[in-house]
């Protein structure tokens, strides 16, 4: 159960003076049960790559398979395969279209042929998931919301479709820290309960370190690195900086503390781990 890219090239506006190669020879398999963070400088090809995972863009060269079905082939179940992949776009205003928040989120469940009662149930759940109060917001126009509220509507709409592969393209841009934390907690629960795949495009190294079990680093249209958060963030700081990225705040703090003489173990990545390690060397509980 996986999505697979084989030697994918993608070129925008091919054959014009504005031609732009956005992906070069990208090969990759993402299995169900993986939580993959995709990081890379702006323009490195992240959004272009994830739009191949649900067939929204077709490669200029190479192949894309969802659960072994070639998206460029003639199999009768191509549409069904694409529907297993849910995508929250980088710009939420690109995927919001209905007159009310309710109608916008209800679109997916309705398309799946659910009864009106079930649809309402799904919308309720999805709004709860992203922390939007049903009474306050269900009847509001999604275009008259704040940036962060609009982002939450977009996330809710995709979550309500219960995808097997959930792609989130910079979902936390514009979310307040509380919402980020709460939504990621729900996403982790969903991930663990349903063993789906999560593909998270993010500019936050902290988010990548904290939630993902695999990190893909894109640079200049190519995959530069593919490894666990530990491998990437603890051993490749110079390459990351060269690729316009950074190491997480936690890793920077640990480095300063070790330089200052505090005897912390290597390999600390998350905030709770750092706090626990400091307490230990200071004999606190």
């Amino acid at each position: 159960m996986s999505i697979r890219l084989e030697h994918v090239d993608f070129i925008y506006m091919q054959g014009t003076p504005y031609e732009k190669q956005a992906l070069s020879d990208v090969s990759l398999t993402i299995n169900k049960g993986e939580f993959v963070a995709v990081i890379g400088h702006t323009g490195s090809g992240k959004s272009t790559m994830v739009q191949h995972l649900n067939g929204l863009l077709q490669p200029s060269k190479g192949k894309v398979f969802i659960e072994d079905v070639d998206l460029a082939g003639k199999a009768p179940n191509i549409k069904a395969c694409k529907q297993k992949v849910g995508m929250v776009f980088q710009y939420p205003e690109h995927q919001i279209f209905a007159e009310t928040v309710f109608e916008d989120i209800a679109f997916g469940p309705r398309n799946k042929g659910m009864s009106e009662a079930e649809v309402e149930q799904q919308v309720h759940e999805a709004m709860d998931f992203v922390g939007l109060d049903y009474e306050t917001y269900a009847k509001r126009s999604p275009f008259q919301l704040s940036g962060g509220q609009m982002r939450r509507v977009a996330i809710a709409g995709v979550v309500a479709m219960k995808p097997d592969y959930l792609i989130l393209d910079e979902p936390s841009a514009g979310l307040d820290p509380g919402a980020k934390e709460a939504i990621f907690e729900r996403i982790m629960k969903l991930y663990q309960a349903r063993k789906i795949a999560i593909i998270l495009v993010t500019h936050s190294m902290e988010e990548a370190a904290r939630y993902a079990n695999r990190i893909l680093v894109l640079s200049k249209s190519r995959i530069l690195m593919d490894g666990t958060p530990r491998e990437i963030f603890l051993h490749h700081r110079d390459e990351l900086r060269q690729a316009s990225l950074d190491i997480p705040q936690t890793v920077q703090l640990v480095e300063l503390l070790r330089q200052g003489g505090l005897k912390l173990p290597e390999g600390l990545l998350t905030e709770p781990a750092v706090v626990a390690a400091i307490k230990k060397v200071r004999g606190l509980h």
Binding site: G40, H41, T42, Q90, G147, E170, A173, G174, H203, M205, R241, S244, L245, D246
Partner: peptide, 12 residues
């Protein structure tokens, strides 16, 4: 208004 929300760490 959130000028860095869409930027990578270097851009920020």
């Amino acid at each position: 208004d959130e000028p860095t929300a869409m930027l990578d760490p270097l851009g920020r």
